[in-house]
Amino acid sequence: MKTQGKAFKYPDNVDTDVIIPARYLNTPDAKELALHCMEDIDKDFVKAVRVGDVMVAGHNFGCGSSREHAPLVIKTCGVGCVIAKSFARIFYRNAINIGLPILECEEAADEIAAGHEVAVDFDSGIITDLTASKSYKAQPFPPFIQSIIKSGGLLKSLKEGERND
């Protein structure tokens, strides 16, 4: 899996309440929810984002609520990958389960500037800042998690498991 696009830069502790405010959670409809992605900290995000763009953030991205709506709206907006210094654990789990590519890379998260063109090879974990001509290597996932991602999410991997039993 690969993605290429513009970087949107965010600080430490981006919480699920700003990714998708709870006032909109009276619907499970991803497309409707995605209209409000990030609006409380970046009201122009939804208008500016294009398919393949990447989010670059600090520590503890996705902290707070367990709402799966958070990775879901980011994915629905077209974001190809979230790169952060670290992820809050429920967000990390949810992103894998729903198939939103995420990578932990401290150096890339520090150095990539907003608006830079970034290419990500999700399989190898290579992140390239094309604007600055610099590459970074992110921690790869353990094989067990890679198998969930390759199946297209947790439930699909469970169904595959059932068929192989």
């Binding site: 367990s66 709402r67 799966e68 990775p71 429920i90 789990r93 949810n94 389960n97 729903i98 999410g153 947790l154 439930l155 469970l158």
Partner: peptide, 10 residues
């Protein structure tokens, strides 16, 4: 522990 909806479904 807290999880998301897909984990709940599984």
């Amino acid at each position: 522990t807290g999880v998301g909806s897909t984990d709940m479904a599984a």
